[in-house]
Amino acid sequence: MNYTLFTLSWFETILAGISVLAIYSFLYRENKFYRLFEHLFIGISTAIVTIEPIKTFFWQTTLKPLLGLDRLAFPDGTYVADYDFNYLLFLIPIFFGSLYYSILVPKYSWLAQITIGFLLGISGGMAFNATMVEVTPQIIDSFRPLYINLPEQSARENLINSLNNIFFLIVLFSTSCYFFFTFKRKPNGVVEKISTSGRWLMMGCFGAFFGTTIMARLALLIERLQFMVDHWWVAVMALF
């Protein structure tokens, strides 16, 4: 990739590279260079998260039709269609949603509870539906045959799949046992021993999570290094 000096893409690349160096300087020690860019990042992120929904959703689909700005106009200034007064109905949900901000005024903060209650009701209903859709197939899949003898599979494949399902059931049962607190467990009792094995199996799972987390973090570093090598360094060398 080639960069022409003092063009927008050159400035973007140089600034991005400086930002990367500033953030990674924290690995050496806490410093003001890092803090400056951390605050810049927070400010820019907040601005994007605030502006994008307004620009792409609230303005386009709500405010523009409400104000009649989406109507096509003839050269003489008259409009192709009359203003649709049904758009004024938008004011009802806008007003209702705006009650959320009454939380900022102590005297009227109770009004926010109406909006919050409404949102909680909707969220609860949707979460119930969503959980059923997401978890039910996983519960159904847990009922697996312990002995598999499919004619289309070889004896080795049947054996491996059978062992896999047996192991799956052991893990499922022992891990569930760990979270079973309904009655008092006897020390060195059967349930206690099964739940201990469940804890060990979960430790193995957490180890896998830890390993994949390291992979993901390393990938982040490598991607930035790749940017520094392939782009930033080329942009810097364009100066000389």
Partner: peptide, 12 residues
Amino acid sequence: IMTALSIGNILI
């Protein structure tokens, strides 16, 4: 990225 990641994982 995968190549660098593999080497990084070996180091870790």
